[in-house]
Design a protein around this nucleic acid. Structure first.
Lengths: 347, 347
DNA sequence: CTGAAAGCGCTTACAG
DNA sequence: CTGAAAGCGCTTACAG
């Protein structure tokens, strides 16, 4: 049970430590016969490299940090982990998640970032960083990849959703279904920095204007940041109450996430609003609940986005020059049972 | 931008490297004044320890491996990551996920495990390992924690669900609702080793017998391992077809997971089977879709289970003797809208 | 193609 | 309470 080192393998194979190192890492300049003997010796002894020692000596940690603003057991974040793992693991990298759930821990992390040598790259997911932090990222020697970031500023590479196109499709659908008044429901975020969902509401407005809707045909719900005590259920109640009490109620809604859309639909139905007959609802994400709830929604694929981000991370770590470091990923509108023609045009 | 070392801090603070190391790690035997100066110097320089160097020197990697049999973007696995993170991160440990999706990669991983020095502990999630691998785990110097494992054998500590009690509650409910014939639906796993869900079906049978059901009152669906091409949808179809074609159809089902239960319900309804009027369905997990689908189910909390496992990991890494290394976690039956009295007793 | 030696950035007895 | 020195297990020029 003694800890094996490269030296044990060297003795077993009758060569020097350096040769073992080279042979096992598949470098050239090793005699094929020698390599064979070393590999067999290593296998016989169940030898494994100490990643710490390798890293220390080589200066490469073979680790990439995945920075999250909130829990990893969400549909989006866990998909990001999976996608990143799929491309990073085969390339020999460990992924290590890091969560900075509040401003304080985020500040602390960024403060020590410049001196951090514990990763070869960092993938930052769904952060909306201020100018200072972005500048800090730019100064980093380690490559930084923005995933679902608000903008591409400050990152060496980024993968973002084309929110503009996504909302355009959705609004055009509503328009062609004859809906005259539209609503956008935002899920009032707890963190001022988490998720760049603001771009969705902005894109909604832009799309609506483009399609000819006037300001008074649009109602925006759930805007602004709420305090700590403000729960998901509170947000649902607030949004439902606003909708039910609005004199000139919209007949179609775009909702920030599927999760929120589904909860809102349940609440509305309880109060006699029929979906989709009285109210069309379009979600965002196409996460697991969307098909279950038969929800019309905007499909995005975070696993795929994370694969792209990880691929870029690898390129950057290998100092490859990238022709297109910043990617805008498209979405797809998925028609299901929560959308219908406006009541006025229904027979 | 030169990489800072402990030595830079030592010079800045006017002390030796050793003193910096001791001061920054909060060890005793350091003069309070000295400690202050060192801490300030470190902060001024944005110094961060190289975890690789620390690990190599101390022999502790400050890393724990989370071993999964499948994708991490599932409800269960992502919850495990979250729970493990919550207790491991504050204690200074990184968590690094490792997925062995097939027998081959699993074998490869276990083969190199004995020589592995890249983690201080390993949490094995939802594996059903054979005798050889369990023996291998026992021989490991590194503590091994089983989470949702089939048994506690081979692990230094374990956290498992009390499947027996869980199914007992469910079956008792069905019994008291007057259901005479029961079904259990299994989701035919792709991997022979993944998830110890077998214990659920076994527990179902035991519970049913205990409640007085005879073998001919029980139908077991979806047993056995399927090939690679066998999809989730295939499994749903197969189960639904079996149910619809059974001459003496059961009036109540326990289903292995919520996900499968919800899909099965949708399929059954499409063929005119009313849930819960004609068929009661009870899921397992109480994951996100359960409330959305208004599904009666058995609640478990993998985040909590992972927190327990991580707590045990920390204790073991600190060589603490544990009074109760093996925990059996209870479940709760959650009544929702997919369960009702048997048709025969309905007015 | 191969080996001896220095060095990566820490920790840890060992002295003092 | 503090410092000098050895050592953790590798990698990497540098010779040969």
């Amino acid at each position: 049970m003694a800890r094996l080192t490269i030296h044990d393998v060297a003795i077993e194979a009758g060569v020097s430590d350096s040769t073992v190192s080279r042979a096992l890492r598949g470098l050239d300049r090793v005699d094929p016969g020698t390599r064979m003997r070393v590999e067999e010796a290593a296998k016989r002894l169940h030898f494994t490299f100490s990643r710490n020692a390798s890293s220390l000596a080589s200066g490469r940690t073979m680790r990439v940090t995945l920075l999250f603003a909130g829990a990893v057991n969400t549909w989006f974040n866990s998909s990001v982990m999976q996608g990143a793992y799929e491309v990073l693991a085969p390339a020999g990298y460990d992924i290590v998640p890091l969560i900075t759930p509040d401003k304080q821990s985020q500040d602390r992390y960024f403060e020590m970032l410049p001196g951090n040598r514990n990763a070869d790259a960092i993938i930052v997911t769904s952060f909306d960083l201020d100018k200072d932090k972005l500048r800090l990222l730019e100064g980093l020697t380690m490559p930084t990849i923005g995933l679902d970031s608000r903008t591409q500023d400050g990152y060496d590479a980024s993968v973002r959703l084309d929110a503009r196109q996504a909302m355009m499709e959705a609004v055009q659908l509503l328009h062609s279904l004859g809906h005259q008044r539209l609503g956008y429901v935002q899920q009032a975020s707890m963190h001022e920095f988490a998720f760049s969902v603001k771009s969705r509401s902005e894109s909604f407005l832009t799309a609506a204007k483009t399609c000819g809707y006037r300001q008074r045909d649009l109602v925006m719900l759930g805007e602004g940041v709420r305090g700590d005590g403000y729960s998901f259920e509170d947000a649902v109640s607030t949004a439902a109450a606003s909708l039910l009490s609005t004199p000139d109620r919209p007949t179609a809604l775009c909702v920030e996430t599927d999760e929120f859309a589904v909860a809102l639909i349940a609440r509305l139905r309880r109060f006699g609003v029929r979906v989709p007959e009285d109210m069309t609802v379009i979600g965002f994400d196409d996460s697991g609940i969307a098909p279950v709830a038969d929800l019309t929604t905007i499909h995005q694929d975070p696993v795929h986005m994370a694969r792209l981000a990880a691929t870029q991370a690898i390129a950057l770590m290998n100092h490859l020059r990238m022709e297109q470091p910043h990617t805008l990923v498209g979405t797809r509108l998925i028609l299901r049972g929560t959308s219908a023609p406006a009541p006025s045009v229904q027979r």
